[in-house]
Every structure is written in C-alpha cells, then in structure tokens.
C-alpha cells in the first residue's frame, strides 16, 4: 500500500505522544487539587499506556517496527511527540491544558481511522475512543470550572492552553500533507479539518478564545498566528527541534532499575 509509510509515521506519533501523556498523567496522581482528581489522573495514565501498547502492537504486526518503551533507546530528538509534553508539567493548569488540547487532538486523529480501510487500527479505535470520552469530559469539566472565575488560576490555564494550542497545531501538519491517506480511504477526515474541530471545541469552553491563541475564521476558529511550515518534520509531526527531556525518558524506561529487569 502506497499509504503505508504515512500510516506508520502517524501510528508512531500517536504512540509516542500517548506514552508521554500517560507519563504526565501518572506524575499527577499525587499533588492535584483533590484526591478525586489524582485518581482520575492515574486512571487516564493507565489508559494512555494501554493505548500506546495497542498501537505498538499494530506497528510490530503490520510494519515490523518494534517499540518497547522499556527497551527503547531512541534519543529525545527521534521522538514523534507533541512538543508541549517535552518537559514536566509543573502546574495543574498545564496538566489540564494537555488533557484538553493534546489528548483531544489524538482522539480526533484516531477517530479519522475508525471508518477507514486500515482494519488493524479501525477495529480497535472505537474501544479507545470510548475510554477517551472520559478524558474529554474531565478536561471540559476542569476548563469550564477554571474559566468561570477571573484570577490567577484562569490566567495560568489560559497561558498553558495557548502553549498547548501552538504546539498541537504543528502536530496536525501543513494542509494537504495527509492527502494520500485520504485518497486511499485510510482516513475519513484530514488533519486540517480535525484541527479546526479541535479549535471549535476549545473555543466553546473558554470565555475568550483570543486568550488561548485562537481567532474567528468564518464559522470556525483558527490559530491566531500563521505557522511557517517550511521547517516541518513530517516524520515527527513537529516544527520545533528537540524532544522529551532525557530524565523523563529514563524514568519511563526504568533506566535506574535496569539491574532488576531480568529478575
């Protein structure tokens, strides 16, 4: 299939981003504003790790690409993950921004495979999206709550959302980059349309979409600044160089506990 390399790179990007998203959710098992929020974060972490494992299984079976998070030796700059997750999410505002923007972006991309012709993924997407429904409800609940009152919490959330929006816009890529997958029937919606759906959803949650970097565009919303796609890395779906902090990858890989791996 001519679309094979594009499917493969999309799967890697989804898997890498879900792995890091799971890491950040897991980090917030402790320290959120309420015990209930910590349980929710822990639960979301488990599901993201499960989804990454599922996607890695498809990569292995269909593309003979082995990604085992514990044995992964790729350097940070080889990761195909959304840049917003490159560093520890140090505030609850950043965690909510990742939940509301990054997580939803992944679900939208996955949803475009549900009715597509690539059956190994189409078969498992409905179950993944069922679990992701809770992630979206969690994000929407928190964004609406924090947006309901002016103050430092709302300012922090808007700042985090604006950064997440900018980094996630790059993940969707330049217009038309996914034309082959659409033409081949592998996906039923292109990234440009999905990106606009994400902005529309986010704009419906916040009181001032301009404060998170969005601007009205006809009936929909678009990024307030134009992105220069000349430096876009199609393999990593990123505009920015760099990658996840090595210390985070070491934690994910259990680097400090390598002596116990064969035990």
């Amino acid at each position: 299939m001519r679309a094979g390399p594009d499917i493969r790179s999309t799967l890697v990007a989804l898997s890498d981003t879900k792995l890091l998203l799971g890491y950040h959710y897991g980090e917030w098992t402790f320290g959120p504003p309420a015990i209930e929020a910590g349980i929710a974060a822990c639960s979301m972490a488990q599901e993201e790790f499960g989804h990454a494992r599922l996607l890695n299984g498809i990569l292995k079976r269909e593309f003979e690409l082995q990604i085992d998070p514990l044995d992964d030796v790729r350097p940070p700059e080889a990761f195909a993950s959304i840049a917003f997750l490159d560093h520890p999410l140090v505030s609850w505002a950043e965690l909510i921004a990742a939940n509301a923007v990054v997580d939803l972006a992944l679900s939208l991309v996955l949803s475009s495979f549900a009715e597509g012709s690539f059956q190994p993924l189409a078969r498992v997407v409905p179950k993944m999206l069922l679990e992701e429904r809770f992630h979206a409800e969690h994000a929407e609940g928190w964004v609406r709550l924090v947006e309901s009152e002016a103050g430092p919490a709302r300012n922090a959330l808007r700042d985090a959302l604006a950064r997440a929006v900018r980094d996630t816009a790059a993940f969707f890529g330049p217009p038309g980059h996914d034309a082959e997958l659409i033409r081949a029937g592998v996906r039923t919606a292109n990234d440009a349309a999905l990106r606009e759906r994400l902005w529309t959803r986010l704009a419906s949650l916040v009181r001032d979409p301009a404060a998170v970097g969005l601007t009205g565009d006809g009936d929909g919303w678009s990024l307030a600044v134009d992105l220069d796609w000349s430096g876009w890395d199609a393999g990593r779906r990123r505009l920015s160089a760099g990658g996840p902090e090595q210390e985070m990858l070491d934690e994910l890989r259990g680097t400090k506990n390598v002596a116990f791996k064969s035990a």
Binding site: I35, E36, I39, S43, E137, H138, W142
Partner: peptide, 17 residues
C-alpha cells in the same frame, strides 16, 4: 461519596473511583 467542585466533574470522578 466523593468531593467535587461541580456536577460535571462529580460524574467523571464517580465512574472512575
């Protein structure tokens, strides 16, 4: 029982807890 700032998050928390 659970604690939540509103019904929207209460729904989410209940199903998970």
């Amino acid at each position: 029982t659970l604690n939540a700032p509103g019904i929207e998050l209460a729904r989410v928390y209940a199903w998970r807890i």
